[in-house]
Amino acid sequence: MTAREAVETSGAAERGRSVAAIRRLLPEEVRGALGRHFLIAVPFLWLGVFFLAPFLIVLKLSFSEVALAMPPYTPIAEWVDEAGSIHLRFTLNLSNYLLLVEDSLYRRSYLNSLGIAAVSTAVTLAIGFPIAYALTQVARRWRFALLMLAILPFWTSFLIRVYAWISILKTEGFLNQLLAWLGLISEPLQILNTNWAVYLGIVYSYLPFMVLPLYASLERIDVSLMEAAADLGCRPIKAFWVITVPLALPGVVAGSLLVFIPAVGEFVIPDLLGGSGSIMIGKTLWSEFFNNRDWPLSSGVAVILLVLLVVPIVLFQRLQLRRTVG
């Protein structure tokens, strides 16, 4: 940088101009690269500050031990004064992870969560696909309005909607009254505080996350592909399975991940709608943290949950990549 430009840099108001001046001094390709790197850096910075850093803190916490202190855990690195010489001592405590693996409560929580999330995702997909497909078939001028209807529930707080389900599902609630009035049941059904209510809550809450990516990928499919299939002797129903469904696969994967991942860690729905029998890992984590004040153990729960979710996704992406390249 020349002296003149160094002076320019000093004024804050001048900064914009001086950046431009510096960039003018750089060769064309470096300038392009600078802009590109800056653009790429922004999301990385965001992820670093709001995802990676908190995760590292949680990871560190998971290797501590509970202590009656404020904050309620032992440090993993500590200055100690031993026989006059001061040095840093590291204590990595693996007991949290050992407990998580050994105690069947945690194992059951994890498996339960994965199972409930998997079933809910499948049901959401089964309901969401026809909805998304129907959206692509209606006249274009109706589509926007219908899409808006699909995401309309977001206008109301998630928590309030889950509370609303309580009053629908409870024994003297709307659903039971309706069924009794129709004469279909003589005794009220116990739906609230069972796994059924949890499934219902998850499917209801996450349906838009399934419909939107499915709609996006279905809408991109050229109608002439279906015409070409028909022209080549393929009946419409078969064409749907061999053309539409495979081409909508990216949407299926995206929607399923968008539903499955948050559903695994779901806390509010099992807590409000599920019974004491429906243990999910989110609930376990919550009670470890707030009831037992065991920050290190709950951190361990969170770390394992993350590993359980991230590893399959990475493997899946690898597979996708190999398939498109190969």
Binding site: S224, L225, E227, A228, A230, D231, L232, L247
Partner: peptide, 20 residues
């Protein structure tokens, strides 16, 4: 007669090849 029962094949302007 619907297209899938006609002894006729069409080449589309956009080609309409199946991308997958």
């Amino acid at each position: 007669v619907p297209p899938y029962e006609r002894p006729v094949n069409m080449m589309f302007q956009s080609y309409a090849l199946f991308p997958h």
